[in-house]
């Protein structure tokens, strides 16, 4: 409803709530105020809605109970404990797969290293990064290469230092 219509005597019931809350633009609020002065029906509506607000505001607030804080921290502890148990469980699952993961990691390292060294040694004669076939002594310095035969036994691979 625009201000012109309100001035010609239309009711302002739809605007009363926002008017009460001070949420109308200044000119519109002034128009509603004028209308309320002149219209008993709208004034009655305004007074009834104002009474509703007074009633609601009259209901006393509650204070936190003595246990509120303690119960909250209990819940925090319960949640944190559950969370850490979940992490421990995940670690346990990963732990049971440890031998397999260790073997897979070792295999990836050896294969990736071999591929890298093969390519870098194939098209230059860099004495520092020689090819695989000619330099098994270079690879032999790595413990995992010394124990390649253990790939057939996961448990033993897992027990190698550093894995």
């Amino acid at each position: 409803m625009d201000i012109k219509k309100q001035k010609t005597g239309d009711h302002v019931r739809d605007l009363i709530s926002a008017f009460m809350d001070g949420e109308l633009p200044v000119r519109q609020a002034a128009a509603v105020r004028r209308h309320l002065d002149e219209c008993p029906a709208c004034r009655k509506e305004y007074e009834a809605l104002t009474s509703v607000d007074h009633l609601l505001r009259g209901v006393p607030a509650v204070s936190p109970s003595a246990d509120f804080s303690r119960n909250f921290w209990k819940k925090v502890n319960a949640v944190e404990t559950r969370r850490s148990r979940g992490l421990m469980g995940l670690m346990g699952i990963l732990g049971s797969w440890r031998p397999v993961l260790a073997a897979a990691s070792a295999l990836v390292i050896v294969v990736a290293g071999s591929v890298f060294l093969y390519h870098s040694g194939s098209d230059n004669n860099d004495p520092v990064m020689p090819g695989i076939a000619e330099n098994m002594t270079f690879y032999g310095d790595y413990e995992i290469v010394q124990n390649l035969e253990l790939f057939e036994n996961w448990e033993e691979i897992a027990s190698l230092d550093g894995i």
Binding site: A61, V62, S63, P64, S65, S69, V76, V79
Partner: peptide
């Protein structure tokens, strides 16, 4: 804590439930 408990209390009208809801908020 008091404003949130009261907000929840006015929403649900049950004191104990309101405190549970408020605890969930802070959690």
């Amino acid at each position: 804590q008091a404003p949130i408990i009261n907000f929840c209390f006015r929403f649900c009208s049950e004191r104990t439930l309101a405190e549970d809801l408020a605890q969930e908020v802070f959690l």
